[in-house]
Design a protein around this nucleic acid. Structure first.
Length: 471
DNA sequence: TGAAATGTTGGGGCG
DNA sequence: ACGCCCCAACATTTC
């Protein structure tokens, strides 16, 4: 007899190494793959159009991949608990499978679904989004790690499951209604920003290209925003177009047998994958970080409003070239190099003295890879309010950071074209450009490019004082 | 996955 | 030859 399991896609938009999907495939003769557009998510103010655009792409790719295997993606819209109950009734499915999430919103939603379907069918969540599930790594004392380095040491000693390939062929029930894939505009979003194509095909291509061309140099080049030293895989990991275990083993396999410096690149990249796991387990176990400081005493920090400065930061008009380049890269591409994310976050919190949550929100609105766990973790790190935080006195100097990581100014010049003719020597501190050079180099401050909106040395002192009041 | 202030050392210019 | 000063280079401390 035919039995059916519904696979509910959420942040696992792939067939490859998809834990719940493979379990459904193994456990039933027919799998019903469904994605539900949830108004509650789509209308959230921090759901940015670039991410919705990427999502639509990923769904189209997912549907195409399913069709190539004899399946098709069922699209519904509404409240997940209602739509799933309806779909269970339509199909007579014996179970709903999904991969677990770590976000408070998702956990509450999934609890509602389980409650709604409790007497109708089985509902099972699987671990899929990490190298190591968020509840699987604990200290000897049984507590959750809140410092990265010991977390990583423990994690590296635990084997990462080998990725499993996608099921070969699907059998799906005939005649199920499915909505057409909506357009971005139909979902109430619009953007001109060009982003990478969504889907697991592009994800695998990018992974393979990165491993082949950049992995070996990752330890040396990942911090240089003018180079393509990073993997660019963050949006694919964000939407589950790429299995993190697939990513891990691609790096492992490429460096098998190598030791020492030869695998330094892979080691550092794997460490970045573990940062992702680390912040996911932090959000899972300390859900209050969504709204407040991990270190609760830092909720008392007296951040300033400084609305004009916030607008200047968002627009990339702070007068600090590396900061402005980063913010403009974000605005025009929906992505920002990680080193520069740290610099602009330090600048917002420690130079403009603005609450990290406002920066976090802006990132969520604009980043194609915007993810609560990673974004919140990164912002709290920069603001010194989080786990494993940089001590509060670690304040980036936007000039020396620029000189160190963009020594020729190539990155600055790419995104801040008005500085294109400024010589290397002054590219990160145009206010020190001798007056007689300003006209010939088309860098008249206040006309061609803004004066610095703050004095770094002075703001640094104010930031230190702000934190000192809490200690 | 800092930066700035302060301390120490040592070479060289100079009287 | 010698002490003194300057200052760069490096190390240490402090925030």
């Amino acid at each position: 007899m035919t039995d059916r399991i519904i696979h509910w896609f959420r942040r696992d938009l792939r067939l490859d190494d998809n834990t719940a999907l493979l379990a459904a495939y193994d456990g039933a003769t027919e799998v019903v793959p469904v994605f539900i557009f949830d108004r509650a998510i789509l209308s959230r103010p921090d759901t940015g159009p670039v991410r919705v655009k990427f999502l639509l792409d990923a769904l189209a790719a997912l549907d195409a991949n399913l069709r190539a295997r004899g399946g098709a993606l069922i699209l519904r819209a509404g409240l997940p608990e209602e739509e799933l109950a309806r779909l269970v009734a339509e199909t007579g499915a014996k179970a709903v499978y999904y991969n677990r999430d770590v976000e408070p919103f998702a956990l509450a939603r999934d609890a509602r679904v389980a409650e709604r379907l409790r007497e109708t069918c089985a509902v099972r969540g699987f671990e899929d989004g990490d190298l190591h599930p968020p509840d699987s790594i604990k200290t000897k004392g049984g507590t959750v790690y809140t410092v990265f380095t010991p977390y990583k040491r423990t994690a590296l000693a635990i084997p990462v499951p080998k990725p499993r390939s996608a099921p070969e062929a699907f059998r799906v029930p005939a005649g199920l209604a499915s909505n057409p894939l909506p357009t971005l505009a139909e979902l109430g979003h619009a953007t001109e920003v060009q982003i990478p194509p969504g889907g697991e095909g592009p994800a695998r291509e990018r992974l393979e290209g990165f491993v082949r061309r950049h992995l070996a140099d990752y330890d040396r080049e990942r911090d240089l925003p003018a180079k393509t030293g990073t993997s660019g895989l963050s949006p694919y990991l964000r939407f589950g177009c790429l299995s993190p275990r697939r990513a891990f083993h691609a790096a492992e396999d490429a460096t098998a047998g190598l030791t020492g410096p030869a695998r330094a690149g892979a080691d550092v990249w794997i460490s970045e994958l573990l940062w992702r796991d680390f912040y996911r387990q932090i959000l899972f176990h300390f859900s209050y970080v969504e709204n407040g400081s991990f270190k609760k005493s830092y909720d008392e920090l007296a951040w300033e409003r400084n609305d004009d400065l916030f607008e200047a930061w968002k627009a990339g008009r702070t007068g600090f070239p590396i900061v402005d380049a980063g913010m403009r890269q974000l605005a025009t591409t929906g992505w920002m190099h990680n080193r520069v994310r740290m610099i602009v976050a330090s600048f917002l919190t420690k130079d403009l003295l603005i609450d990290w949550r406002r920066g976090e929100r802006h990132f969520m609105e604009t980043l194609v890879d915007g993810d609560l766990a990673a974004n919140n973790g990164g912002w709290q790190w920069a603001a010194s309010t989080g786990t494993d935080a940089q001590p509060y006195f670690r304040i980036f100097n936007p000039v020396s950071q620029g000189q160190k990581f963009d020594p020729t100014g190539a990155y600055v010049k790419k995104y801040v074209p008005e500085l294109a003719s400024v010589p290397e020597k002054w590219i990160h501190e145009p206010w020190n450009l001798p007056l007689e050079y300003r006209k010939p180099f088309r860098c008249v401050l206040g006309t061609d490019y803004p004066y610095p909106v703050v004095d770094h040395a002075r703001q640094r002192e104010k930031a230190l004082a702000l934190f000192k009041k809490i200690e």
